[in-house]
């Protein structure tokens, strides 16, 4: 009985610690600049405005509801990039947390991703407001919107795994940062963020299964904008990707990340 209570209090202490670290991380990111939290809300709107001008006005894209289409794609993309590119040096910048104690390093990653999740949900809120108030001609609020919860969970695990891999490799290869930046620019153009889905699929057949972000974005649009069920095959493939990458990440953290205190 006592052991059970001990385990419970250890678990609640751990959760409390994650929440505390996430809050501080969030504060550091957004309250350190003049615009504060407003910046977190403004960023996806500005991103969307830029791509809207480029693709709708200049290139005359034919995608219907293009603003909302872009918005949801960018919200997902930004979370992935912030959680991966933004965490490559995490074992260096957060060294103060583990170099004097036996704190489990995975907690450091989780807290940073939780902080990013707060930003994600603010952005999602902006998307809901936008598509219900400004872009009202399509499905609107309905039950299929709830699919965003498992979709976000897959995105979270995928980002966590990628972050674990990159930050562990960083210990032995510092320029992984530059390589990853190039790779993400490439990936950005290989994801259906601003392309019409049918042209993306015909140009790169089967690629929505190869690129898990493509699958997540496609399913988010189906469930959030079109009032449809997700494409279950894609959902399954993305889940498999997320689990595989997270497993590889955990393994690397154990092999390479464990040596961070002595190597960095």
């Amino acid at each position: 009985m006592m052991e059970k209570n001990n385990n419970e209090s250890a678990a609640s202490r751990k959760l409390e610690r994650l929440w505390l670290l996430a809050k501080i991380e969030f504060k550091l990111r957004y309250y350190e600049n003049r615009l504060g939290l407003f910046w977190a809300l403004l960023k996806p709107v500005l991103d969307m405005a830029i791509y809207y001008v480029a693709f709708k006005i200049v290139l005359k894209s034919e995608v219907p509801h293009f603003a909302s289409y872009l918005f949801i794609g960018l919200v997902i993309w930004n979370f992935f990039v912030e959680s991966t590119t933004g965490t490559i040096q995490i074992l260096q910048t957060k060294k103060y947390l583990y170099q004097y104690s036996n704190m489990n390093k995975i907690e450091i990653y989780l807290s940073v991703l939780f902080a990013n999740s707060i930003g994600f949900f603010f952005n999602l809120l902006m998307f809901f407001l936008f598509y219900n108030l400004a872009d009202t001609r399509f499905a609107g609020l309905n039950g299929s919107n709830l699919w965003i919860v498992p979709l976000f969970f897959i995105l979270f695990i995928l980002s966590l795994g990628t972050s674990l891999i990159l930050s562990s490799v960083y210990i032995i290869a510092k320029d992984v940062h530059q390589l990853w930046t190039v790779f993400t620019s490439f990936l950005f153009f290989l994801s259906p963020i601003f392309y019409k889905l049918s042209s993306f699929k015909s140009a790169l057949p089967g690629f929505d299964y190869v690129n898990p972000l493509a699958g997540i974005i496609i399913n988010a649009r189906r469930t959030m904008m079109e009032g449809q069920q997700p494409d279950y095959h894609l959902l399954l493939a993305d889940t498999a990707w997320a689990i595989g990458i997270a497993a590889a990440g955990l393994l690397l953290l154990q092999k390479l990340g464990a040596k961070a205190a002595e190597k960095l």
Partner: peptide
């Protein structure tokens, strides 16, 4: 103990104690 120079004394106290 390990502390972050980007945080205030108050924040460092809470973070370190929590760790």
């Amino acid at each position: 103990v390990g502390m972050s120079h980007e945080l205030t004394a108050r924040e460092n106290i809470y973070v370190s104690s929590s760790v």
